[in-house]
Simulated assay, not measured.
Amino acid sequence: MPSTRNLSPAIAAAGLVGGYAVARWTKKRPLGGVVLAVAGGVAAREWQQAAGAKAAAALTGAYVAAFAGSHPLAKKIGAWPAVFSVAGAMAGAAYAVTRNAE
């Protein structure tokens, strides 16, 4: 069974995708923000346990930047492609930072 640390890239990506999906389908942006924040908090805790406070802070900053960056990207390539793009990039970054940390 994989450890929780190995799931942190998926948690971060799911937070970005899930937050957008909830906001879009419920038409309640704050509810999507709750999903985004909860997943980000869980991922940040896992990043800190796996790789330390500095790595967790950097990855949390990347998570927020991915969310913010998806908005202008959506104007160029569409909303869902933008969300999936930043979620994939975030998962890749989280994996790169935490893969050898166990």
Rank of each mutant, 00 (worst) to 15 (best):
residue 52 G to N: 10
residue 61 G to S: 11
residue 38 V to G: 02
residue 18 G to I: 02
residue 69 G to M: 06
residue 80 W to C: 04
residue 99 R to Y: 15
residue 59 L to F: 10
residue 16 L to M: 02
residue 86 V to W: 04
residue 29 R to W: 06
residue 21 A to F: 06
residue 78 G to D: 05
residue 91 A to I: 02
residue 97 V to H: 15
residue 70 S to P: 07
residue 95 Y to Q: 13
residue 7 L to T: 01
residue 3 S to Y: 09
residue 93 A to P: 07
residue 12 A to C: 02
residue 23 A to Y: 05
residue 24 R to D: 12
residue 6 N to F: 10
residue 15 G to H: 01
residue 99 R to T: 14
residue 72 P to N: 06
residue 68 A to R: 09
residue 65 A to D: 09
residue 7 L to G: 04
residue 21 A to L: 09
residue 37 A to Q: 01
residue 77 I to L: 07
residue 9 P to Q: 02
residue 98 T to V: 12
residue 53 A to F: 12
residue 91 A to L: 02
residue 7 L to V: 02
residue 77 I to Q: 04
residue 71 H to D: 12
residue 91 A to N: 03
residue 39 A to T: 02
residue 17 V to K: 02
residue 60 T to K: 06
residue 64 V to H: 08
residue 10 A to G: 04
residue 47 W to Y: 15
residue 3 S to P: 10
residue 24 R to W: 08
residue 28 K to F: 12
residue 11 I to E: 00
residue 16 L to G: 01
residue 86 V to D: 05
residue 41 G to N: 00
residue 45 R to V: 14
residue 36 L to H: 10
residue 70 S to Q: 15
residue 95 Y to I: 05
residue 53 A to T: 15
residue 63 Y to V: 08
residue 26 T to Q: 08
residue 56 A to C: 09
residue 74 A to H: 06
residue 99 R to M: 13
residue 24 R to V: 06
residue 77 I to F: 04
residue 19 G to N: 02
residue 4 T to K: 14
residue 69 G to T: 07
residue 63 Y to L: 08
residue 17 V to M: 02
residue 5 R to P: 01
residue 52 G to F: 09
residue 99 R to I: 14
residue 2 P to R: 15
residue 6 N to I: 07
residue 36 L to Y: 13
residue 51 A to F: 08
residue 100 N to Y: 15
residue 41 G to E: 00
residue 10 A to H: 01
residue 50 A to Y: 10
residue 38 V to M: 03
residue 26 T to L: 08
residue 28 K to D: 14
residue 47 W to S: 08
residue 65 A to V: 14
residue 99 R to A: 15
residue 84 F to T: 03
residue 22 V to F: 03
residue 89 A to T: 08
residue 43 A to M: 04
residue 27 K to I: 00
residue 47 W to C: 07
residue 2 P to M: 15
residue 22 V to S: 03
residue 22 V to Q: 03
residue 76 K to D: 03
residue 22 V to H: 03
residue 61 G to R: 11
residue 8 S to G: 05
residue 81 P to F: 04
residue 70 S to H: 15
residue 75 K to G: 14
residue 71 H to L: 15
residue 46 E to N: 09
residue 98 T to Y: 13
residue 23 A to M: 03
residue 34 V to H: 00
residue 74 A to V: 04
residue 54 K to N: 12
residue 62 A to T: 13
residue 27 K to Q: 11
residue 12 A to M: 02
residue 40 G to K: 00
residue 11 I to Q: 00
residue 35 V to G: 00
residue 56 A to M: 12
residue 30 P to N: 06
residue 15 G to P: 01
residue 59 L to G: 11
residue 56 A to F: 11
residue 57 A to D: 08
residue 77 I to T: 07
residue 45 R to P: 02
residue 96 A to E: 12
residue 57 A to W: 11
residue 11 I to A: 01
residue 15 G to I: 00
residue 67 F to R: 09
residue 92 G to K: 09
residue 1 M to H: 14
residue 22 V to T: 07
residue 2 P to T: 14
residue 101 A to F: 11
residue 60 T to N: 07
residue 96 A to L: 15
residue 45 R to S: 13
residue 53 A to P: 05
residue 28 K to M: 11
residue 98 T to L: 12
residue 95 Y to D: 06
residue 32 G to V: 03
residue 8 S to V: 10
residue 87 A to S: 08
residue 26 T to D: 06
residue 100 N to V: 06
residue 66 A to W: 07
residue 56 A to N: 10
residue 26 T to P: 06
residue 85 S to D: 01
residue 27 K to C: 01
residue 75 K to N: 13
residue 25 W to N: 11
residue 31 L to S: 09
residue 89 A to V: 14
residue 33 G to P: 03
